[in-house]
Design a protein around this nucleic acid. Structure first.
Lengths: 207, 207
DNA sequence: CTCGCGCCGATTGCATGCAATCCTTGCCCT
DNA sequence: AGGGCAAGGATTGCATGCAATCGGCGCGAG
C-alpha cells in the first residue's frame, strides 16, 4: 500500500479538480482526517504540498481554502501558458512514439464524445499533460503543472460557448495530426491558437 | 515569535542558497531537528515544502537530499528563463517606482564591489527577484521562483570567466538605466542578452 | 570465491496528546 | 443602543511515541 499522504493528496487533488469541492470552501484538518480515515499529520503534509502547487491557499491559524482565481490572475496564467506550452509542444513532437500518438488520438476523440464537464476537464488535463511530459524537461513541466493542473480549467470550462468548444476540440485533433506528421511548427501554431481561443472565451464569458 | 516551520524553511533555504550545504548532501530529519532545536514535525513539513519548490529532492523512505542539476537540466532551466524573464522585465519596467529604481541601482553597484561569491549570488537573486516581483504576476513569480531561487546560480556562478562576469555586471547596470528611462523594449533586450551570456558561460565552462 | 538470503539497526511515516493562538459570542461600559 | 473587551470554544501547530519499511551486513550455500 502506498504511503497515506500520497493517498490524501490524490484524493484532495481529484476532488478539487473534479469540482466536488467548490472554490473557496474551508478545509479543516480534523474534518478531512475523519473523512479520509487518516490522522491529521498526513493531512497537514498534504495541504502543505498542495499549497506549494497552488491548488489550495494556506493562511496561518486560519486553515486552508481551495484556491480561486480572479480574472486578472486568469489573464496572467494564460500569458504564462502562451509563452511555455507552444514551446513544450514543439519540443514534444519529435519525441512522441506511435503508442503515445495513438493515446493522444483516443483522448481527442473521447473529448468529442463525452459531454460531462468533469470528465472533459480530466481528459483535457491528460491531453495537455502528455505533451508536457513528452517535452522531456522537468523544469518546464514543473512550471506548467502549477497553472495547468490547476482548477483554472474547470473554473471556466463551463463558460465555453458552443463555437469555442467546437474550435477547442478541433484544435486537439489537428494537434495530433501535426504531431503525427512530425511538423513541430504546425503543432506549435495550433497550440497557440488553442490557447488564444481559450483565453478569449474565458475573459469574455465569466462574471 | 513566528511559526517554527517558517524558521526552519528560512534556515534551510539560506544554508542551501549560500552554499553552506553542498549539493547532494543527505538531510536526516533527526539531525536537522536536533541542529535547529525543534521537533521532527516542522522539519518534515519544511522539507516537504522545499521539495515542492525544487530546492531539495525527496525520495520515499530515503530521506531528503539537496537538489543538484545535470548539464542537460541547466540547459532546460535557461530555456525556461529565456522565455519568462525578459517578459517579466518588460512588465516590470512601467511599474517600478523611484525607490525601487534606487534599490536596483544599489544592488547593481554592490555586485560590482563585492567579490565574495556567496554574497554575489544573494545580491543577484535579489536583483532578479525585484523585477519578477514588480511584474505583478503571482503565477509568473511562482514559475520563476523554482528556477531562479534555486541553487542553480550558485552551482555555476564560480565558473564565470572574468569577461563573462564583467558583461553580466554591466548588464545589470544597463537594465536599471533602461528601466529608469521607462524603455521596456530596451530592458527586455538586455535581460535576453544577460541570460544568453550566462547560459553560454555555464554550458561552456563546467564539467 | 562469489552470489543470494535473512536478520538487525536506523530512519521514515503516522497517530495521538498538549499547549498556543485565533475567532466568536456575550456582557459591560459609555 | 452601539462599541469595546474578555472569556469560552474550537482549531492549528508542535512534541513525542510507536509501528512499518528500507539499507547494510554477515552467514551460508553453490
Amino acid at each position: 500500500m502506498r504511503p497515506a499522504v500520497e493517498q490524501v493528496i490524490q484524493s484532495l487533488r481529484d476532488e478539487i479538480l473534479s469540482g466536488a469541492i467548490t472554490s473557496g470552501t474551508r478545509l479543516g484538518e480534523a474534518e478531512l482526517a475523519g473523512r479520509l480515515s487518516v490522522s491529521r499529520t498526513p493531512v497537514r503534509e498534504a495541504l502543505s504540498r498542495l499549497a506549494a502547487e497552488g491548488l489550495v491557499e494556506l493562511t496561518p491559524h486560519r486553515g486552508a481554502r481551495v484556491a480561486s482565481w480572479s480574472e486578472e490572475q486568469l489573464r496572467e496564467i494564460f500569458e504564462l501558458r502562451l509563452r511555455l506550452e507552444p514551446y513544450a509542444v514543439r519540443q514534444a513532437v519529435p519525441r512522441l512514439n506511435a503508442h503515445q500518438l495513438d493515446e493522444l488520438d483516443e483522448l481527442a476523440e473521447a473529448m468529442i464524445r463525452y459531454r460531462d464537464v468533469g470528465r472533459l476537464v480530466e481528459l483535457n488535463r491528460r491531453f495537455h499533460g502528455m505533451f508536457i511530459e513528452a517535452a522531456g524537461s522537468p523544469p518546464l513541466a514543473g512550471a506548467l503543472k502549477a497553472v495547468t493542473h490547476a482548477a483554472v480549467v474547470h473554473q471556466n470550462f463551463a463558460d465555453y460557448t458552443p463555437d469555442a468548444m467546437h474550435r477547442s476540440l478541433n484544435h486537439h485533433v489537428e494537434m495530433v495530426a501535426a504531431a503525427r506528421a512530425g511538423d513541430g511548427d504546425w503543432a506549435e501554431a495550433v497550440m497557440r491558437a488553442h490557447l488564444y481561443n481559450a483565453r478569449a472565451t474565458m475573459i469574455g464569458g465569466n462574471q
